[in-house]
């Protein structure tokens, strides 16, 4: 069996006494779409931060494409093809939309010049549906458009793996459908995707496999339909009383 694209071995991250991520081990194969779910405060974003180098790991090892990348710097992750979107969007406010995306193409996407980066940016912006706003300052965009911009920036980095941290939060239903279509198209281009999401409809519809985090630990892992039936998952989301009641009803 070949090495996975991303391999986490006993990864931990503690903030003082708080064990935000505790002994997480997982393998993500190239081409997968993996959902990462868990209640608020379960450590999902912290895990993404550790993978992309925004936080140092307190313990454990991370391998990406067979290379040990534990405690890499964020810019190194970006250049290796590990790109992420932020839960809270992070544009360069007074640059134009095109310049925002060109930055990704130039510094991580291996564009050879600023001109080439600008051209690449335009293509990615057309792809996410911002083609008409290329010259607008990023600060003038609406929230759905900022999310699209965030996605275009990540794509311009030519990632092998894309970590989507709540790209759909704050969007309405038709905007979510549009975002799902984009994510599927990106996956079809061969980009491996880890998606963090609160909306079950999105996660279940997209993911081939789901990882469940609870209190910083990986409590369950499996296909979407199995995860919904998993006792530990129900307990994590709805509390143990509900889980027991449900068990009693079944037997």
């Amino acid at each position: 069996m070949s090495a996975p694209l991303l391999e986490l071995t006993n990864v931990s991250r503690h903030f003082g006494g708080v064990r935000a991520v505790q002994n997480v081990s997982a393998r993500i194969e190239a081409g997968e779409i993996v959902g990462l779910i868990g209640p608020n405060g379960a450590g999902k974003t912290t895990l993404v931060n550790v993978i992309t180098g925004a936080h140092r790991a307190t313990g454990g090892e991370i391998h990406f494409m067979g290379e040990r990348v534990t405690n890499q710097k964020p810019y190194q992750a970006a250049r290796r093809g590990l790109s992420r979107t932020f839960q809270i969007v992070q544009p360069f406010p007074s640059m134009t939309v095109r310049e925002n995306v060109a930055a990704g193409a130039l510094f991580a996407g291996k564009a050879i010049s600023r001109r080439a980066a600008m051209d690449a940016a335009e293509a990615h912006l057309n792809f996410v549906g911002l083609g008409k706003l290329v010259d607008a300052p990023a600060s003038t965009l609406t929230l759905p458009n900022r999310k699209r911009l965030e996605l275009a920036k990540s794509l311009a980095m030519r990632p092998r793996m894309l970590l989507l941290d709540e790209v759909n939060a704050g969007l309405n239903l038709s905007e979510i459908d549009e975002a799902l279509r984009l994510i599927r198209e990106i996956a079809a281009q061969g980009v491996t995707i880890i998606i963090i999401e609160h909306l079950m409809k999105v996660v279940l519809g997209l993911s081939q496999r789901i990882l469940v985090l609870h209190h910083g630990e990986l409590t369950a892992e499996g296909a979407p339909e199995d995860i919904l039936e998993d006792e530990r998952v129900i307990e994590a989301y709805l509390g143990d009383r509900f889980a027991k009641r449900r068990q009693g009803a079944q037997s």
């Binding site: 710097k73 810019y75 992070q90 360069f92 640059m95 930055a103 990704g104």
Partner: peptide, 26 residues
């Protein structure tokens, strides 16, 4: 101003964390 360095510095000026995540060795 016209090169990579100026563009990267402007990214840092606007949002240093985002620049780092985009591959700028801040």
């Amino acid at each position: 101003d016209r090169g990579r360095l100026g563009f990267g510095l402007r990214c840092i000026q606007q949002n240093e964390d985002a620049a780092n995540m985009l591959g700028v060795d801040v």
